[in-house]
Each structure stands twice: as C-alpha cells, then as structure tokens.
Simulated assay, not measured.
Amino acid sequence: MLAGCSAAPDTAFPTTPTTAATSAAASASAGTPSPGAPAVEQPAAPTKVSIPSVGITSSLMKLGLNADGTVEVPPADQGMTAGWYTGASVPGAAGAAVIIGHNDTRYGKAVFHDLKDIAKGADITVTNARGETAHFTVTSTESVSKKSFPTEKVYGPTTGHALRLITCDGSFDAQGHPVNNLIVYATLD
C-alpha cells in the first residue's frame, strides 16, 4: 500500500485515520443553530496548494476513504495533482488538514517529487473556493516506515490549526515500491 506515490495503479494509504478525526469532522457540520443565532459561515473547500520554495503548485482534488477504510490517493494518471483528504479538517480551520500527493508514478515525476527538499520555516499557501488563502509555516518533516505510520500524530485531534503533507520516500522494496512516507508538518501563521 502506498501514500502519495504509485508504482502500482491507484494504491491506497496504508492506515485508517482515527475515528476521532473523522467523527470530529462529521460532528462539525451536524450542529443546528438556535433561533436568532447568527449564521456561521462554513469553511470553503481548498482548491489549490502552493509551495514556492520547492516549486510546487497544484490544484486539489477531494479524497475520501476506500472501501477497505484506507485513505484514497490521487489516481496515478493524475500524478501532478495533489488531493485534500475530506475526512480531516479544512486547511485553515482548527485541527489537522491533510494533503496527499504522489512523488512519482508509472507515468513519471509527480507533484510532490521535490517535497523532500522543503525546509523548516518554508511557506505553504492553501487557497480555497472563495479565493481566500491560508499560510502555513513548516515546523518539521519526518520520513517514517509505512509499516509504522504515525496515524494518530497525522490524523488525530489537535488544539491548533495544522497542515500535513504526505508523499512517498526512502528506498524501494523488491516490488519497486517506496518503503517510507515523507510527512511535512506545518502550522497556520
């Protein structure tokens, strides 16, 4: 199973997000305002991510869950497009938002190919459907084995406004699949 890269067609993210992250996203839209209460504007879906320091700009597709409970990744034939996982927070809202992109696919270099070069302090800008932007600052990166992916750390609840970018990383196994994931952690400015 892969996250953000593909040697095999349309493979999925190796772990299931915690139910806390998915139920928090579901309950956020479940409330009913009391009579006379001002309407609360719902966050607009993200449509674009830009990381100038590494030359990345991409529109964003929506990603959900596969039938087996793993997180979808963008189709390999759309490797130059990143995706926002809709079961997590909207970028800029409270909680952890997650954007997944391929490093390489069978079609060649993909959208997050150069993500490995990102540095602490780099700016990540996410634009939403209303044209509003949220700026995030990279706080750290880590390369982790897909066999020990930190699901709770990536998808779990946070008290802040966080963004996680995920792609493949590391050496290759016998089938030619990368064995690690690169995770970029960022916080809202």
Rank of each mutant, 00 (worst) to 15 (best):
N66F: 08
G95I: 08
K116Y: 06
R130M: 07
K120Q: 11
N103Q: 11
P74R: 12
Q42D: 05
G4D: 06
D189C: 00
A26V: 06
K62Y: 03
T57K: 04
K62H: 06
H177V: 04
A82E: 14
S29E: 12
V54N: 08
Q42N: 07
M61E: 08
V73K: 05
A12F: 13
T105Y: 00
N66M: 12
T19V: 15
T81E: 11
T141M: 13
V179G: 09
R130G: 00
Y107I: 07
K146L: 14
T70L: 15
T127W: 01
S53C: 08
V184L: 04
L188W: 08
V90N: 06
A119C: 06
I166T: 01
R130S: 12
T133H: 01
K146E: 04
L60T: 02
T159F: 02
Q78M: 14
A44Q: 11
Y155T: 08
D117M: 09
A39T: 14
H113F: 14
P75K: 15
Y107C: 05
T32G: 03
Q78N: 10
F136N: 01
A110E: 03
V90W: 12
S6M: 06
K153V: 09
A162V: 11
I166G: 00
Q78R: 13
T19K: 10
D169H: 10
V49P: 01
A20E: 15
S171G: 12
E41M: 09
T81Y: 01
E72A: 13
D114G: 09
D104T: 15
G64V: 11
I124T: 05
A174T: 14
D77E: 14
A76F: 04
I99W: 02
D123F: 07
A8L: 09
G160D: 02
A174Y: 00
L182K: 10
E132I: 03
G131A: 08
S34C: 13
F172S: 11
M80E: 12
V49I: 13
A93F: 08
A21N: 06
L63A: 08
I99T: 01
L188N: 06
E152N: 15
A76Y: 06
G87V: 10
S23D: 15
D104W: 07
T133I: 02
P9W: 07
S29W: 00
N66C: 09
T81C: 09
T139Y: 09
P178M: 08
L182H: 07
A97R: 00
V40N: 05
T86Y: 02
S59E: 09
K48D: 01
Y85G: 04
T70N: 14
A162T: 12
A8E: 10
S59Q: 07
K147G: 07
Q78T: 14
Y107R: 15
A76H: 13
T47W: 05
Y185G: 00
A21W: 03
P38L: 02
A30L: 09
H177R: 11
